[in-house]
C-alpha cells in the first residue's frame, strides 16, 4: 500500500472547503465535489503512470466518501459529532422517549397493514409523514449542533433519525415487493 500525504488524511470539511457546520451550502458542496473529481478522477489518469493511476483511484474514492458523508444529513451529523469525540451510542443506548417509541410502533403496524393490503397509497402517505418528521429533526439538529452545541441532545436526535432511516428502508422494500 502506498503511504499517503498529509493532505489525503484531511478532514472532509477542509477537503471540500466548507465550514464544519451542520447547515452547509449544499450547492457549494456539489460544485466543489465536481471540481475535485475533475482533478482526481481515474478517467483523467488512465494514460499516465501506474503510480498516478493508483493515487487517482485513492483520491477519487476519498472524495466520493467525503461527498457521501457530507451530503447526507444523518451522516454529516454523525461525522460532526465524531470530530468532537462524541459517541452517538446508536448500538448501545436504546433508551428512547416513550412518545417516540409509541409513534414508531404505530408506524410499524401501519406499515405491516399496508404491506398486507398491498396498499401503495398508504405507503406513499407514510413516506410523506416520515419525510416531514425527518425534516423537523434536521431543523432541531441544526440548532443543537451549530448554535447551542448541545452534543448530547444531538446524539439523541441521531438515534431517532436512525430509527426513521430504517423505517424508510423498509417502506422502500415494501414498494419493491408491491412491484413483484
Amino acid at each position: 500500500m502506498l503511504s499517503v500525504g498529509a493532505d489525503f488524511q484531511q478532514d472532509f470539511f477542509h477537503l471540500f472547503n466548507l465550514p464544519a457546520r451542520f447547515q452547509i451550502d449544499t450547492a457549494q458542496l456539489e460544485q466543489n465535489f465536481r471540481s475535485l473529481q475533475a482533478q482526481v478522477h481515474p478517467d483523467k489518469f488512465s494514460h499516465l503512470s501506474e503510480a498516478e493511476r493508483r493515487l487517482s483511484m485513492q483520491w477519487a474514492t476519498r472524495v466520493n466518501e467525503g461527498y457521501q458523508t457530507l451530503r447526507d444529513p444523518l451522516h454529516r451529523a454523525r461525522y460532526l459529532l465524531a470530530r468532537q469525540g462524541v459517541d452517538t451510542q446508536e448500538e448501545t443506548n436504546t433508551a428512547m422517549p416513550v412518545e417516540f417509541l409509541m409513534q414508531q410502533m404505530e408506524w410499524r403496524e401501519a406499515l405491516e397493514e399496508a404491506k398486507q393490503a398491498k396498499d401503495a397509497m398508504a405507503l406513499e402517505e407514510m413516506e410523506r409523514r416520515m419525510q416531514n418528521e425527518t425534516r423537523i429533526l434536521h431543523q432541531q439538529l441544526a440548532i443543537d449542533l451549530d448554535d447551542t452545541r448541545d452534543y448530547d441532545a444531538a446524539s439523541g436526535i441521531v438515534r431517532k433519525l436512525k430509527f426513521l432511516e430504517r423505517l424508510a428502508e423498509e417502506i422502500g422494500s415494501a414498494f419493491d415487493e408491491l412491484d413483484t
Partner: peptide, 26 residues
Amino acid sequence: ALNQATTEFAQRRMDQSVKHALAGHK
C-alpha cells in the same frame, strides 16, 4: 522501477491539483 521512482512526485502533483481544484472558490 521508474513507477517506483516517481511515486512521491505523483503524490505531490496530486496534492497540488487538489489544492488548485478549489482555488477558484477562494
